Amino acid sequence: MLAMAVAGACFGVTASPAAASPAAASPAQAAPSCPYPYVCFIKNDRIIGKFKDVTSDWQPLPSKPSAPLAVVNTRHDDVVRVRFTSGSVSCIPPKTTNHINGGQLNAVRISSSTRC
């Protein structure tokens, strides 16, 4: 489990609207909320890590979470970059959720840039 008190990103799983069923949970109930100004990592409907500091270097993710998971960037003006163990990098614009469907992450970096 990713447990961090450092700045960075949040992974979040957002629920898709369920078929019209009175017993189905609403998206707000099904997924945890990532608070501003964090970037959250969400897996299995649980926040497993969250970061908030802008850094010039990569911040390692000790648990190296694997897909499926989501990265939620609640920041208004900052992009988030996540690095996979393969070396590839994904950029997440402000106020965006990125669903990771494959691979394993090992680092995060919040940049003051407003665009990827």
Rank of each mutant, 00 (worst) to 15 (best):
72 V>N: 14
100 I>C: 14
68 P>M: 06
53 D>Y: 09
92 I>K: 04
64 K>F: 01
26 S>R: 05
43 K>G: 11
10 C>L: 08
71 V>R: 00
80 V>R: 02
95 K>P: 01
102 G>A: 12
94 P>E: 06
5 A>D: 13
29 Q>W: 00
61 L>Y: 02
45 D>P: 05
103 G>M: 02
22 P>T: 07
96 T>A: 08
86 S>M: 02
73 N>P: 10
100 I>W: 09
1 M>C: 12
27 P>H: 04
32 P>K: 06
112 S>C: 07
73 N>M: 04
58 W>H: 12
38 Y>P: 06
8 G>L: 04
82 V>H: 09
42 I>T: 14
25 A>I: 02
73 N>C: 07
83 R>M: 13
110 I>S: 14
4 M>D: 11
16 S>V: 15
85 T>C: 05
42 I>S: 13
63 S>Y: 01
19 A>M: 09
3 A>V: 13
75 R>M: 15
105 L>H: 01
38 Y>W: 07
55 T>A: 15
103 G>Q: 01
58 W>L: 13
66 S>T: 14
18 A>I: 05
115 R>L: 03
36 Y>L: 11
33 S>Y: 06
109 R>V: 12
85 T>F: 01
58 W>I: 07
15 A>S: 13
55 T>Q: 15
51 F>S: 11
27 P>N: 11
104 Q>W: 00
37 P>G: 04
17 P>D: 15
27 P>I: 11
7 A>L: 06
22 P>S: 09
22 P>I: 09
2 L>I: 14
60 P>N: 13
79 V>S: 07
96 T>H: 11
90 S>I: 00
6 V>P: 09
37 P>Q: 01
3 A>H: 04
61 L>D: 01
80 V>I: 10
20 A>T: 14
74 T>K: 11
79 V>Q: 11
105 L>Y: 00
52 K>L: 08
9 A>H: 00
16 S>G: 15
80 V>G: 02
2 L>C: 15
57 D>P: 05
4 M>F: 01
99 H>R: 11
95 K>A: 03
96 T>G: 07
113 S>K: 02
47 I>D: 05
8 G>K: 02
94 P>F: 00
72 V>S: 12
105 L>P: 02
99 H>M: 07
4 M>P: 04
51 F>L: 08
83 R>C: 05
56 S>Y: 11
41 F>H: 08
76 H>M: 05
11 F>M: 06
6 V>H: 09
64 K>R: 10
78 D>H: 12
100 I>F: 08
90 S>W: 00
33 S>V: 14
27 P>Q: 12
86 S>D: 15
58 W>D: 13
80 V>D: 04
2 L>W: 12
23 A>K: 10
63 S>D: 13
85 T>H: 02
77 D>G: 00
23 A>F: 14
94 P>N: 05
50 K>M: 09
94 P>R: 05
40 C>F: 08
33 S>P: 10
69 L>K: 04
37 P>M: 03
88 S>E: 11
